[in-house]
């Protein structure tokens, strides 16, 4: 699905990605973890073409993505901060994103699922943080695309919405989608992830299943396992 070779990127003197190699196979939920500043978002944005790498190549479904844009038709992306033009109503916003994609959607179903009906005629800027995030999720999931990238999807969600989100992710997985997700909520990761990629200092420190991670670190849950990795590298 995604093949990344020797990806390098620095912002000024700050070297964020230092020759990262990664292959992601189709189908399943892959969690990208790592401490703050380890390059998670830069990696995701490189895949999306928002950050232009200094070196290395990224190809999706066998095609190099450099300076291309049409490949994004196959990607759904949930950004970390939901901030859309505040003067538009939620309904118009949904309409706009649909208009940009020209694809069939299941937005009605998702509006019901997240109980967004009362907010459709409200301006986006007047919504609460959690509701904004729900709209954000709706805009991401309403299409049917093979690759889904979620950057901190749980931010601001209430427990009910969180359950719906997990169901949604599982549903997409059952449909054979590839889902990349970053999160700092380890319970969430433990519950949904098939595979974990741990980034550290711009390289991949660990890649494997949740079970592999537990065995490697001899811990009982992901939270402690990740903490153990972080501790180990501190001492090293």
């Amino acid at each position: 699905m995604i093949a990344i070779t020797n990806l390098k990127k620095s912002f000024g003197r700050n070297e964020v990605l230092k020759g990262l190699d990664l292959e992601i196979k189709p189908k399943g939920i892959i969690a990208i973890l790592g401490p703050n500043g380890s390059g998670k978002t830069t990696l995701i944005k490189s895949i999306l073409g928002m950050v232009i790498p200094d070196e290395g190549s990224i190809s999706i479904s066998g095609k190099d993505i450099k300076n291309k844009w049409a490949y994004r038709k196959e990607i759904e992306y949930l950004p970390q901060i939901a901030n859309f033009p505040g003067n538009l109503k939620v309904r118009e916003l949904i309409h706009m994103i649909k208009d940009l994609h020209q694809r069939p959607t299941n937005d009605e179903q998702l509006i019901d699922l997240f109980g967004l009906k009362p907010f459709l005629e409200k301006k986006f800027s007047t919504l609460s943080g959690g509701t904004k995030q729900k709209v954000n999720i709706l805009l991401t999931f309403m299409f049917d695309k093979p690759l889904i990238i979620l950057d901190e999807p749980t931010t601001g969600l209430d427990p009910r919405a969180l359950i719906h989100l997990k169901e949604l992710i599982q549903y997409e997985k059952a449909n054979g989608k590839t889902i990349l997700v970053t999160s700092h909520i380890m319970h969430f990761v433990e519950e949904i992830a098939d595979e974990i990629i741990y980034l550290l200092d711009g390289r991949i420190y660990f890649k494997g299943s949740v079970k592999d991670l537990m065995e490697k670190t001899k811990q009982k849950n992901v939270e402690h396992a990740i903490a153990a990795i972080a501790n180990n590298t501190d001492h090293a």
Partner: peptide, 16 residues
């Protein structure tokens, strides 16, 4: 003000 919106658009299948 539209920085985040621009970022959203950049992730859509649209030319920069």
């Amino acid at each position: 003000n539209s920085k985040e919106f621009t970022e959203l658009l950049l992730a859509q299948p649209i030319k920069r």
